[in-house]
């Protein structure tokens, strides 16, 4: 049984780690050119764009890493305690609260960084006023929130500790064979 515990834990930890790496590194690369292209061609605007994208990339990475870390701590605690009932309910509530807090903080950190970079009104000065341009330029905010949200739900619903319920269907389908004894016996 120890072997099966190790196997299930390894699968969950590794899948979460891979997803974290993907969510932390890939989105900033993917949206970089898109956002950079929306800034005016003036040197000042491009300079701000570079700093903005560079800063938000690190904030994004840090935020995703922090969310992963918080969930990893809860994973370890859950795995170690392997409890249920009221104890698990209160810990799950705390985990949810901390995840929401981190997501809000990461968006706030990006907004704060933008103000730290330049407290001027950016719309119309550094990039166009169209709604779709605003949506793209502010993409780091909602992408970090979306990535954080997805990672949080993945950690809790697809790859939780083995004392917690796997809710996502695909994860359930993958996990089910690991709790099935061989029928040849």
């Amino acid at each position: 049984m120890n072997g099966n515990v190790r196997r299930r834990v390894s699968v969950r930890v590794i899948s979460t780690l891979i997803l974290t790496a993907v969510l932390a590194l890939l989105p900033p690369i993917l949206y970089h050119d898109l956002i950079y292209g929306k800034f005016f061609l003036e040197d000042a605007a491009k300079d701000i764009a570079n700093q903005y994208l560079n800063g938000t990339r690190w904030i994004h990475l840090g935020a995703i890493a922090a969310i992963w870390l918080v969930n990893l701590v809860f994973f370890i605690v859950n795995q170690k305690k392997s409890d249920s009932g009221k104890q698990l309910i209160s810990r799950t509530r705390l985990q949810n609260f901390l995840n929401v807090l981190l997501i809000v903080c990461s968006v706030a950190a990006m907004i704060g960084y933008r103000y730290a970079l330049s407290s001027d009104v950016w719309i119309g000065l550094l990039f166009g006023t169209a709604d779709n341009i605003k949506l793209i330029v502010w993409m780091p905010y909602w992408v970090v929130a979306a990535c954080g949200l997805f990672l949080w739900r993945f950690c809790m619903c697809a790859a939780p500790a083995t004392n917690c319920h796997v809710k996502w269907l695909l994860a359930k389908w993958l996990d089910a064979p690991m709790t099935r004894a061989e029928r040849t016996r």
């Binding site: 049984m1 099966n4 515990v5 392997s82 249920s84 690991m178 099935r180 061989e182 029928r183 016996r185």
Partner: peptide, 21 residues
């Protein structure tokens, strides 16, 4: 107790005789 519940949560059962497992 946590060691027991950890193992039990990952126990492998045959659906045809799950309670035996």
């Amino acid at each position: 107790c946590s060691q027991i519940t950890t193992k039990m949560n990952s126990t492998r059962v045959d659906p045809r005789g799950a309670t035996k497992y």
